[in-house]
């Protein structure tokens, strides 16, 4: 029966969102009743500069199939350069993933200002679609 058929497993995307911009943009997307996939789980951070390389790796290791780091637009970080640091760290993680034979597209950096609710919804949808295309990481299958 159709009702008994198992739903295909969905990928999980973790989004580290800066409280000054991308998190507010996600909030705005909600206020605007814009839809984006429920695959994206948001973690509020005081600045993307707080996101360390091991935070991203441990997310992939422990259940996330993709990670996005969403910070302020370049030049408008509340802490001056936090988003630029995050951008470099994401680039470093990509090189590490390549070394590990994992598609570096699983990790992305985005710059979204607080007023860009629609952009957040678009980025969340595109990222989810990308990760769905890359598939669920082997060790994350049947995570229950």
């Amino acid at each position: 029966m159709d009702a008994d058929r198992k739903q295909p497993e969905e990928p999980k995307v973790l989004a580290f969102c800066c409280m000054y911009c991308a998190y507010a943009a996600a909030d705005m997307a909600g206020s605007m009743r814009l839809t984006y996939p429920p695959n994206v789980e948001i973690i509020l951070v005081p600045c993307t500069g707080r996101v360390e390389i091991h935070h991203i790796l441990e997310a992939l290791e422990n259940g996330a199939d993709g990670v996005c780091v969403a910070g302020c637009e370049e030049g408008s970080c509340h802490f001056s350069v936090g988003n630029l640091k995050a951008k470099k760290r994401v680039a470093y993680v990509k090189t590490l993933l390549e070394e590990l034979g994992i598609d570096p597209d699983r990790v992305e950096m985005f710059h979204i200002s607080a007023s860009q609710g629609p952009l957040f919804a678009k980025v969340a949808s595109e990222m989810t679609e990308n990760i769905r295309r890359l598939g669920i990481l082997k060790w994350n299958k049947q995570r229950g």
Partner: peptide, 8 residues
């Protein structure tokens, strides 16, 4: 990184 590689 090592744990990810081994899980893979």
């Amino acid at each position: 990184a090592l744990r990810i590689a081994k899980k893979k």
